[in-house]
Every structure is written in structure tokens, then in C-alpha cells.
């Protein structure tokens, strides 16, 4: 990833934040609309949770050598 790509993504994120606090300031259809940048938080935490849970399941339960069923 080049620097300008990170900057572009950062600007995009800023735009979503600005929209959230201006256009969507009064939007309220779910309880989490009160949490600022909820979807960013949920996205990031979900991502980490999925990686760690998947890793945990893989290492402790389901990971085997490819010839496991042939032995």
C-alpha cells in the first residue's frame, strides 16, 4: 500500500464521519445510532473477533494435515 492510497482511504473515512454528524445527526432507527461511528467500531471489532475466533477454532479444534482422512 502506497501512502497516497492510505490518505485516500483516510479522506473517505472522514467524509463518512462528516456525513454521519451532519446529514444523519437526527437519524434514529436503531439503538446503536446513538453511538458515534458505530459502524466503524462494529466493523473493526467484528473483523478482529472473526480473525481471533477463526484462529482459535483452527488451532485448537479443526486444523489437520491434508492427508488426515487417508491415513
Amino acid at each position: 500500500m502506497k501512502n497516497w492510497q492510505w490518505i485516500a482511504l483516510g479522506i473517505l473515512f472522514l467524509i463518512t464521519l462528516i456525513l454521519e454528524f451532519t446529514v444523519l445527526a437526527d437519524y434514529d432507527s436503531h439503538w446503536w445510532n446513538a453511538v458515534p461511528a458505530f459502524y466503524a467500531l462494529w466493523g473493526f471489532l467484528s473483523c478482529l473477533a472473526i480473525i481471533y475466533v477463526a484462529k482459535f477454532i483452527s488451532n485448537n479444534l479443526v486444523k489437520r494435515d491434508p492427508d488426515y482422512y487417508d491415513r
Partner: peptide, 11 residues
């Protein structure tokens, strides 16, 4: 737009 962009960026 805000929802999906925030989720995608942070993912």
C-alpha cells in the same frame, strides 16, 4: 453509504 463505507474501511 456511511454504514457500508465505515464497515469496509475498518475491516
Amino acid at each position: 453509504f456511511v454504514e457500508i463505507t465505515q464497515i469496509a474501511l475498518l475491516t
